[in-house]
Amino acid sequence: MSASMLPRIIGFDVPQLREHVDLSADEAITALLDLEPGARWTELFVMKCEALASQLSLAEVRVEGSKIFFYGSISDARGLASAVMSIMHVLNDQLMREGNDVASRQGDA
C-alpha cells in the first residue's frame, strides 16, 4: 500500500473537557484525517485501539469517514491524542511494509 493511500492526522477538534469522562454526555475528541481510510485500515486501527484500550485509558474509539472519535478528560486528552497518532503511525508503517513485501515478491516472479 502506498503512503498516499494511508490517512494522516491533520488536526484535532477538542471540545470543552471535564475532569471525568461521561460517554453519554460528553463530546468526543475528534482527530481530523486528510483522507477517508479504507475498510481494512479502519478495522485494523480499531483492533489496535481495543488491544491497548485498558493500557491507555482509551475507550470507545470509532472511525467515521475522515474522522476518528475518542473520549478523554482534561488530564489525559493530550496523552490520548498522542496514543492515537502513535497507533496510526505503527499501522501505516505496517501496511506500507506489507505493500512493499507484496510488490517485491511480484517483481521476483
Rank of each mutant, 00 (worst) to 15 (best):
G38D: 15
V61P: 07
L95G: 02
D76G: 09
D22E: 10
A39Q: 14
Q94I: 00
L52Y: 07
L32D: 02
E64H: 15
P7D: 09
E19F: 10
L58C: 07
M1T: 05
V102C: 02
V21G: 06
T30Q: 15
R78N: 14
S73N: 05
S57Y: 04
N92Y: 07
D76S: 12
V14Y: 05
L23F: 13
I74W: 06
A3Q: 12
M88S: 13
Q55V: 07
S57C: 07
G72W: 06
R97S: 10
G38L: 07
G38F: 05
S2M: 07
P15Q: 03
D13Q: 14
G99W: 03
D76Y: 00
A83F: 03
L58P: 03
A83K: 01
D101C: 06
L58Y: 02
V61A: 09
L33C: 06
S66C: 12
V46R: 09
V63C: 13
I9S: 07
S86I: 00
S4D: 13
K48N: 11
Q106L: 15
S24I: 04
V102M: 10
E98N: 13
R8H: 11
R8S: 12
L58A: 08
I10Q: 12
I9L: 04
S104G: 00
A103N: 11
L6G: 00
H20W: 11
S54P: 03
E64Y: 12
Q94P: 00
L32V: 15
F45R: 08
S104T: 11
S4G: 02
P7V: 05
F69Y: 15
V46N: 03
T30P: 01
D13V: 14
A103L: 15
A28H: 05
E50D: 15
M88G: 14
Q106I: 08
K67V: 03
E64G: 11
F12I: 04
G11N: 08
L33I: 05
V90I: 13
S57A: 14
V61D: 02
I74A: 13
E64A: 15
D22T: 06
A25M: 14
R8N: 12
S82Y: 07
V61K: 11
A83H: 03
A83Q: 01
S2C: 04
K48G: 01
M1H: 09
L17R: 11
V61M: 11
A28N: 07
S2Y: 05
E27I: 00
L32I: 15
P15A: 10
G38C: 09
G99T: 04
A77W: 14
G99I: 04
R40Q: 11
P15T: 05
A28T: 09
A51D: 08
R18Q: 12
Q55A: 10
D76T: 12
H20P: 00
T30D: 03
L44N: 07
L58F: 02
D101N: 10
L80T: 01
